[in-house]
Design a protein around this nucleic acid. Sequence first.
DNA 1: CCTTCTTGTTTATTTTATAAACCTATTTAC
DNA 2: GTAAATAGGTTTATAAAATAAACAAGAAGG
Lengths: 98, 98
Amino acid sequence: MAFAPLDPLLHNQLRLAIVSLLVGVDSADFNFLLEKTSATRGNLSVQITKLKDAGYVTVKKTFKDNYPNTSCSLSAKGLKAFEAYVKAIKVYLGTGED
Amino acid sequence: MAFAPLDPLLHNQLRLAIVSLLVGVDSADFNFLLEKTSATRGNLSVQITKLKDAGYVTVKKTFKDNYPNTSCSLSAKGLKAFEAYVKAIKVYLGTGED
DNA sequence: CCTTCTTGTTTATTTTATAAACCTATTTAC
DNA sequence: GTAAATAGGTTTATAAAATAAACAAGAAGG
């Protein structure tokens, strides 16, 4: 198989980690993602915004115990994009079908 | 498993494609890589140089039928890095071991 | 010769990623 | 009750990277 282009939005370490975490779960809040990814707050904020702007994740801002709380979940579009990315990169890794 | 950092040198579409192509073969020349990756000459040249500078590929410049010919092959270091990269990214893809 | 083709390299421009600084509100300590 | 520290993020500035455009040097063809 040929090398299909890799979705540049997902072909980034932090954004891929975020989406990867969101795949298995209904929703995850900012601090959970922060801990799991070991990112800085700034970088995490920026990348979540990019994923939101692309329609890959939906973001809900509420208050939890008086503090602002940002909760993210993967959209159908995001899931589809992730699955396509996984399929595409497997070719590069030698893990996909010929 | 946690999200291990992804070797930035390999976490790039074109460089990953180059290395991926070199894994299966003894050596490959510039035009072969150019065709298989659909890259521009400039970009291919730059990325090969980066892989060479990192010691991931070795480059041999000769003349073939009177024309300059650049032949690349994967070094042991490059192969090792590629294998580590594959293992690392599988975690992100949900394909690796827990 | 002089134009075009081959095989690349170098330079310049645009994106992108990351970190540093900032902001708003809340809690805690005095 | 007010100063300092903490929580939860966002915005801005800087550094790094990717890509494309321009250039070069020899070969072939007319």
